[in-house]
Design a protein around this nucleic acid. Structure first.
Lengths: 99, 99
DNA sequence: TACGTAACTTTGAAAAACAAAGTGCTTTTA
DNA sequence: TAAAAGCACTTTGTTTTTCAAAGTTACGTA
C-alpha cells in the first residue's frame, strides 16, 4: 500500500497559510487587516506568508482606497483554488485510507 | 467569523508525522522498516519524527524479535488516536467553512 | 573476522517561522 | 501644525524545525 501524497502541497503545510487559503477560497476576497484579526498574527508574519502564497501565484493582490485609507485585498487565483483543492483531496485520501 | 483551529495539533503539522499517524491509526501496528519504505525517508529522519510522536505519547513502541532479527513496531496510542481525530476534525471544519 | 542489518543518536547545516523594529506614506488628532 | 496613528509592508535577528549523513551498539551471518 502506497499513500498518495504527491498532491500534498508544501505551500499549504503551514497552519497559517492553510488558514489564509481556506478563507480566500471561501470568501473570494479578504483584506489584510481582517486577515490579521482573524488569524491573530503579527503583520510582519502575515505579510510574509501572504508573500509566499503570492510567489506560488496562489493568491492575487488588489490595492485600492476605501474612503481615504489604503486597503489591500487578497484573492485566491484559479491556480490557487485548484492547488488547494488537490491538497484537500490528498488530505481526504489520507483520512479515509484503508488497510 | 472565527476559525476554530484550537484543535489543530502542531505535532501533526509536518507531512511525515501526518503520514506516520495516519498509517498507525489505520493499521494498528507498523514496523520501522516498513514505515521507512512507505514514507521514503532516511532512517535517522524517520526515527526523529517517531521520537517526536512518542514524546507526545501519541504512539507506543514494541520491540521484539522476528526469527532472530530485532523488530520495532509502532502503534498509535488511545491518546494519539483521539488527538489525531481532533486534528482531522479541525481540518474538516476548515474545509467546509462557510462565509 | 569482517560484513550486514536494525534501529537508533549525534552532528551540523539549511530552511522556515516568528517577533520586533524600522520604513514610507497618508490621515487624523491635539 | 506638529505629533500621533493607521496601513502594509521590509529588514533584522533569533529560535525552531527539518533533514542528511555519519557514527553507534548489538546482534547474526558468511
Amino acid at each position: 500500500m502506497k499513500i498518495s501524497l504527491e498532491q500534498f502541497d508544501k505551500a499549504f503545510e503551514n497552519r497559517i497559510r492553510l488558514q489564509i487559503m481556506s478563507v480566500l477560497v471561501a470568501n473570494e476576497s479578504y483584506d489584510f487587516n481582517s486577515l490579521k484579526d482573524l488569524l491573530d498574527v503579527t503583520d510582519g508574519n502575515l505579510a510574509s506568508h501572504l508573500k509566499a502564497l503570492e510567489k506560488e501565484e496562489y493568491i492575487q493582490v488588489q490595492k485600492s482606497f476605501i474612503g481615504r485609507k489604503p486597503n489591500t485585498k487578497y484573492l485566491a487565483s484559479e491556480n490557487g483554488r485548484a492547488a488547494f483543492k488537490l491538497h484537500l483531496k490528498a488530505l481526504e485520501n489520507l483520512i479515509k485510507q484503508q488497510k
